[in-house]
Amino acid sequence: MKVIIFCGGLGTRIRDTSESLPKPMINIGNYPIIWHIMRYYAHWGHKEFILCLGYKGDKIREFFLNYRAYTSDFTLNFNKENKDIIFHNNHETHDWSVTLVETGLNTMTGGRLKKVQKYISQDETFLLTYGDGLGDINLDNLVRFHKMNNKVLTVTGVRPPGRFGELNSDEFGTVTEFNEKPQATAGVISGGFFACDYKIFNYLNDNENLIFENEPIKSLVKDQQMSIYKHEHFWQPMDTHREYLLLNEMYKKGNAPWMIWNK
């Protein structure tokens, strides 16, 4: 199943982490977050990717054009007539298909999705996500849920990570529990990780200012063509420098729930 990834946003809230890279290319450990996202989808058997490029898209193109050099140890024989490069790592990612599409510097998400319609076959179900969020969503269950409900769009609903300490107390005001960074105890938001039918393009137009999360989704809700797959476990965006540090700390400590390919 094809996976479309939004990779073109300006990422203004995380500029203090890196001014020279687009957000999808900011590293978690040794690899950019876009690699982690793609590796996660590939673990579930989804290895055909379509990347919607925009802001600093050349950095993403450069990474994939030189993918083996970025991700492998290799030997260069300068003193021989044969100048072939010898790569020493055998990555499981070599069977991926990656289509990189220029969708415009200032194009909004709805416009970006419309621009890659030509790479999706009619009546094809595909997956859609953002290039800056990680989770341990069971993608088999997501796809199964989507097909069972027979809607145009299924969104993964998550509880957002709390940004402040949460205090619980008894009736006398004595604190009984303190969680430094808890999951929100109420309310569900979109965590991305969408499953879509081709009919989603009927809700889009060629306006580059079209925001997928606004008019198209509101129309889908009005037509009762959107369902929610609830996910109660790990989900974490990388919108800020603090969240960048959090994800890298999880990676460093070997406590990265999204890295299920290592289990």
Results as ranks from 00 to 15, higher is better:
K80G: 00
N82V: 09
K83E: 04
I86R: 14
F87Y: 14
N89H: 01
N89M: 01
N90S: 10
H94V: 05
H94S: 05
D95W: 01
L100T: 08
V101F: 03
V101M: 04
E102H: 02
T103L: 10
G104C: 11
N106F: 10
N106E: 09
M108L: 15
T109K: 15
R112W: 07
R112I: 09
K115H: 03
V116G: 05
V116I: 11
V116N: 00
V116W: 02
Y119G: 04
Q122K: 00
D123L: 09
E124A: 13
F126N: 06
F126S: 00
L128C: 11
L128N: 05
L128H: 07
G131M: 02
G135M: 03
D136V: 08
L139A: 08
N141W: 05
L142I: 10
L142P: 03
R144H: 12
F145T: 04
H146F: 12
H146I: 14
K147N: 11
K147A: 07
N149T: 05
V152P: 02
V155N: 13
T156A: 10
T156C: 15
R159I: 12
P160I: 11
G165P: 01
L167R: 13
F172N: 04
T174D: 06
N179I: 14
N179E: 12
E180S: 07
K181Q: 10
P182W: 10
Q183H: 01
V188A: 01
I189C: 07
I189Q: 09
I189M: 12
G192H: 05
F193L: 13
F193W: 14
F194E: 03
F194N: 01
D197W: 08
I200E: 06
F201D: 12
Y203G: 00
N205I: 12
I211F: 10
I211G: 02
N214Y: 14
S219H: 09
